[in-house]
């Protein structure tokens, strides 16, 4: 068996989610090849070659892959992927965007967001916003899987010494064009990999009030997240949304501030090691998953907490 892992990267370095995906590949077992598709991505490929457990890195460096357009990347991965037993990508918005196309081009189903490898053809994955865990078995010739990063530890970023091989496959479908992007800039850790996450909900009242969370987060070295209600109300940008349809996080510590705990929100954070809930409503469902709850006004509690940590 040989496994192709699609690397999530920014051309210069490999993103953390790739390391978790490699651990999933190791659990399946077999030769692990990593594909770095991008533009000017030699540095990312060199970094991929050092990851523990990787036996080969394929570098597809071409303008067509510069912005990870799904139409182009999927054609590349479907062509290269034909020789593999498994094709894996992290369940990031990028992986979710192009990998189902790969599966369709290979005439197989995709198994989304696996959280456990039972055997090379059998996997666990959450369904119904994490209210049920399904064990599924694929009869497809090639298993195409997205991997939920929180389900697997990160592979060591160093220790490997794989060869980097250039692949000269240029696939430009010509059907779509990158126009622009607005990326959030922040000095705080990324939500996905952070050890501590502090999230605010509708209870924050407005965007300005998030300042008290940012300052608590900075003291803790934490990332800041939000509920959908906070994002919908325009308090904070969409990339901060945690939940069934936002990001899934599983930090050591998750602090939910002014969040009621709707099932869609819980789906994105209930695998955190320790959960703290701060809410003025003692009946809020968030308390049913919290290890430590404190009932009261967040505008009193958060500043006190910041002073004491």
């Amino acid at each position: 068996m040989s496994i192709l892992v699609y690397a999530e990267h920014d051309n210069a370095s490999i993103k953390g989610a790739t390391l978790n995906t490699i651990t999933a590949a190791k659990a399946i077992g077999g030769d692990i090849h990593v594909l770095v598709a991008g533009q000017g991505a030699q540095a990312a490929a060199d970094a991929a070659a050092k990851i523990d457990g990787v036996s080969k890195v394929l570098l597809a460096d071409n303008a067509a892959y510069g912005h990870q357009l799904a139409e182009n990347v999927s054609a590349l991965v479907a062509e290269l992927g034909k020789g593999y037993s498994h094709i894996l990508a992290p369940a990031t918005t990028n992986g979710k965007n192009f990998l189902p196309r790969v599966a369709a081009l290979l005439d197989v189903n995709q198994i989304s967001e696996i959280t456990k490898v039972v055997s090379p053809d059998t996997f666990e994955r959450p369904i119904y916003a994490g209210n049920a865990i399904a064990t599924v078995q694929s009869t497809d010739a090639i298993k195409v899987l997205t991997v939920r990063p929180t389900g697997f530890d990160a592979a060591a970023a160093t220790g490997g010494s794989a060869a980097v091989e250039a692949v000269a496959v240029a696939k430009d479908a010509g059907t779509s064009k990158f126009v622009g992007e607005e990326l959030a800039k922040s000095d705080r850790p990324e939500l996905a990999g952070a050890k501590i996450v502090v999230s605010g909900g509708r209870g924050m009242g407005n965007g300005d009030n998030f300042k008290i969370l940012y300052s608590l987060a900075d003291k803790l070295g934490a990332a800041v997240g939000a509920s959908r209600a906070a994002v919908d109300a325009g308090f904070v940008p969409n990339d901060m949304q945690v939940g069934q349809t936002g990001k899934v996080v599983a930090p050591q510590l998750y602090v939910a501030v002014g969040i009621s705990g709707a099932i869609q929100h819980l789906a994105g954070m209930k695998d955190s090691k320790v959960i703290v809930a701060i809410n003025k409503d003692a009946e809020a469902p968030i308390f049913s998953v919290a290890d430590y709850g404190i009932v009261g006004d967040l505008f009193d509690i958060v500043p006190q907490l910041e002073k004491l940590v």
């Binding site: 912005h67 357009l69 990031t92 918005t93 990028n94 779509s176 064009k177 990158f178 126009v179 622009g180 992007e181 607005e182 990326l183 959030a184 996905a192 940008p237 969409n238 990339d239 990001k247």
Partner: peptide, 9 residues
């Protein structure tokens, strides 16, 4: 809506 923010295509 992408992980880092917004992208227009």
């Amino acid at each position: 809506e992408i992980d880092g923010g917004l992208q227009t295509v």
